[in-house]
Design a protein around this nucleic acid. Structure first.
Lengths: 250, 250
DNA sequence: CGGTCCCTTGAAAACGTTCAAATATAGTGG
DNA sequence: CCACTATATTTGAACGTTTTCAAGGGACCG
């Protein structure tokens, strides 16, 4: 199961500072993301409560709504989708998670996962026992602070798509957000591959799949985007930004 | 319907202490809400870093987007609205806060308030210095846990209105949510007074004010609701719940 | 009593959805 | 390698809910 803990990054954006700690660099980044101060002692303490799990093949359920909450997880490789199901069995997609991003923060409150998480392709995770991390945080104010920050940052995110924005604005904000998040993790901001089908994108944006298809076609005809199946290339970042500005708020 | 829906404890002073600790009861509740365990020692420690502020008259800005973040606050009396302004100067309402509810949790991340907060009527607050509370939390695991819980609980809330729900569903979910929150605080679940104009409700629900007006009229004709200006009475809680179920997820 | 803000109401328009069907792609087994 | 099937995506046209536009009441406050 947990073969090959070492995971090569496609881009040397993150400096591999030849650390004495035997982190895979993605996991080191996730840890650093949590214990922001990045002093080695902190990382070391954190390291002992990290569990490297995976690979999970495409379609694997990482956790289900109602499962008892024990750990948060950082995506180490692959893409994760979270979703809930309504009374009619229809799915509502809540979010997509990229390498370096953290899932499960919304489960602390009820001590159960309030949604399902599924691997959209082959996924590797760093799992952090939350009770242990919280205990550690009482001795490490920096870690506590960073956890507060992570949680706080997630609060506002859903508001982005809560407004009455047009299909164009939604799609632009979605693509630009992904672009930035990829760039932040050391991947290309212009070109990326999306592992999910159009229906998931549509669902996430509260649009019909047909509308997604039409908007993407128009974006291409306007020279904003180049799309080949699930490979995306942003050609006009400014154009996209102009559309997304009111949603992303910058 | 013109009966008084006045909130209890109108006293601007805080000498309304029934219990051993000299808390006003609303504030005690807020404190308890934060240090859930409710042992008196914890409350006492917490009490020293609480600042009772107000009254703020209707229309007062409690904080503005971009203001440096120093404290979270529990509403002690009145109603607070949070909102942001987009590039065209249009307002987007993010939420309404009732007595006992906490504002400012989304400011921890950036150390600046990411939105504006305004008093919809006369408002009293309990202000908690967040840095001090975080420091206290390192010595009080229960407090830390409760802060994590509060933050975690807020993460999922915006998703409620992010879906593509009908105007009826949105309005029903909005009213039922308010009803439950009032009930949780010891107020009536059936009758309550909303301090905000229709435009704010519409904005929050991403609807046109005209649509809000029409939906409310229809709810009344269907016997679900009794509305007199800003006084609401829920007549058919089950009917409302049937409409709101997919949004509130229960 | 006059003014202002808030709320309501009606009719037309817009945007996205739904329905229906064609096309393309990946996976599978011959 | 190809045919074959299921899944995913695209496209067109009609429909529907909500918005927009325009105007008419109504409450509150001086």
């Amino acid at each position: 199961m947990t073969r090959s803990l070492r995971h090569a990054r496609p881009d040397p954006g993150m400096a591999d500072d030849g650390d004495a700690l035997n982190f895979c660099s993605t996991c080191a980044f996730s840890s650093a993301c949590i214990s922001q101060g990045y002093d080695k002692a902190s990382l070391q303490e954190l390291h002992v409560l990290v569990d490297h799990v995976g690979p999970f093949p495409e379609g694997s359920e990482l956790f289900r709504e109602g499962d008892p909450f024990n750990a948060i997880a950082a995506v180490r490789a692959g893409m994760v989708k979270t979703y809930v199901t309504d009374t009619h069995g229809r799915e509502k997609v809540l979010g997509f998670y990229l390498p370096g991003e953290i899932i499960g923060l919304n489960a602390i409150h009820s001590e159960r996962y309030p949604c399902n998480a599924v691997a959209l392709n082959t996924v590797m995770l760093c799992r952090f026992s939350f009770p242990k991390m919280a205990m550690l945080a009482t001795r490490m104010p920096g870690l506590q602070q960073q956890l507060f920050r992570l949680l706080s940052a997630d609060i506002g995110k859903a508001h982005l798509l809560a407004g009455d924005f047009s299909a164009d604005e939604r799609m632009a904000a979605f693509l630009l957000s992904l672009s930035r998040r990829y760039a932040q993790r050391g991947y290309s901001a212009q070109r990326f591959h999306l592992a999910m089908p159009r229906t998931d994108i549509a669902n996430y944006l509260s649009l019909a799949p047909e509308t997604v298809s039409r908007v993407l076609r128009r974006f291409q005809s306007e020279g904003i985007l180049q799309v080949d199946r699930r490979d995306f290339e942003i050609l006009d970042m400014d154009g996209l930004h102009a559309l997304a500005r009111d949603i992303l708020r910058d």
